[in-house]
Amino acid sequence: MTLVANAVTARLGSREVLHGIDFRVRPGEVLGLVGPNGSGKTTALRCCYRALTPTAGTVLVDGVDAHAMKRSELARTVGVGTQEPEASVGLTVRQSVALGRVPHRGWFDRPTGSDADIVEQCLDRVDLTGLAERDVGALSGGERQRVAIARALAQQPRILLLDEPTNHLDLRHQLVVMNAVRDLAAEGLAVVVTVHDLRLAVEYCTSLAVLDNGSVVATGPTAEVLTDNLLSDIFGIRAIVSAVPRLSIDIIGLA
């Protein structure tokens, strides 16, 4: 299932923050939205899951306008992990993740054994099994971040949208989450992720859309997009991108 942003323009209040942006992600791909702070990455993602309505352009989910889909259908198709997830105070981690099953069975239907198995798999995937009975309100920011991702995975979406999924995470759990993202794409999901750390983008994203001041200035395979000139012009850094023995970036200093 493919997600396409087609000439999407968006406003926050009176200010236009996206200017006709285009990008596409297909099954098996991890598309990284990268760019300086304030470039429009989160706004672009919000347009994709209907938290924000574009003022022009369309977001297509397998050719269907996402903003014309029923919310229940969109929830079964598109899973979302936000940058600052709600705390779900009063729920255990397991109960919070189980909310991801609601689009498949309704609010008042009893969970099935299959639902329970899916929840356990999602907890394990982001290293939360040991915290399953903890109150979400008592967790750290990084732990709540992983709960939000697990809940999105419990929806069993075909498209996964993650806004800064490594936000608040220690190094080990950054790798746990990004390895899970890469595995999910290998299993056939289309994944869009906003990434602040270019080293993670190089390691885990198959393609990139580079945003600057609300416009997409480059898009394509990661190895082709991250040129020395782009890193200098857009990010203000001097860096060397190498493809040997694997794609990597060595940040030297400021441009």
Rank of each mutant, 00 (worst) to 15 (best):
Asp163His: 07
Gly130Tyr: 11
Val225His: 01
Glu187Ile: 15
Gly130Asp: 13
Val147Trp: 02
Ile118Gly: 02
Arg158Thr: 08
Ala185Lys: 06
Val176Trp: 03
Ala148Val: 05
Leu175Lys: 06
Tyr204Pro: 00
Val191Asp: 01
Ala186Tyr: 01
Gln121Ala: 13
Thr129Tyr: 11
Val147Ile: 10
Asn213Glu: 14
Thr227Met: 01
Val210Gly: 13
Asp183Ser: 10
Ile240Asp: 15
Gly236Phe: 10
Asp183Glu: 13
Val176Glu: 02
Thr219Met: 07
Arg172Gly: 06
Arg134Leu: 05
Arg144Trp: 14
Leu189Arg: 09
Thr194Tyr: 00
Asp163Arg: 12
Ile159Pro: 03
Leu169Ser: 13
Arg182His: 05
His168Arg: 08
Val191Gly: 07
Gln155Pro: 02
Leu139Glu: 02
Leu139Cys: 12
Leu131Met: 10
Arg182Trp: 00
Ile118Gln: 04
Ala201Tyr: 11
Thr227Tyr: 01
Arg199Cys: 09
Val136Thr: 15
Thr166Asn: 09
Thr222Cys: 04
Gly142Lys: 14
Asp183His: 07
Cys122Tyr: 09
Asp233Gln: 13
Phe235Lys: 14
Leu200Thr: 13
His168Ser: 14
Leu231Tyr: 08
Leu230Gly: 07
Pro221His: 08
Gly214Met: 03
Val225Phe: 06
His168Gln: 07
Leu162Pro: 00
Arg238Ile: 15
Ala116Phe: 13
Asp163Pro: 02
Phe235Cys: 12
Leu184Asn: 01
Val225Glu: 00
Asp117Ala: 15
Val241Leu: 15
Ser232Met: 09
Ala243Thr: 07
Ala201Ile: 13
Asp183Tyr: 04
Ala243Asn: 10
Asp170Tyr: 12
Asp135Leu: 12
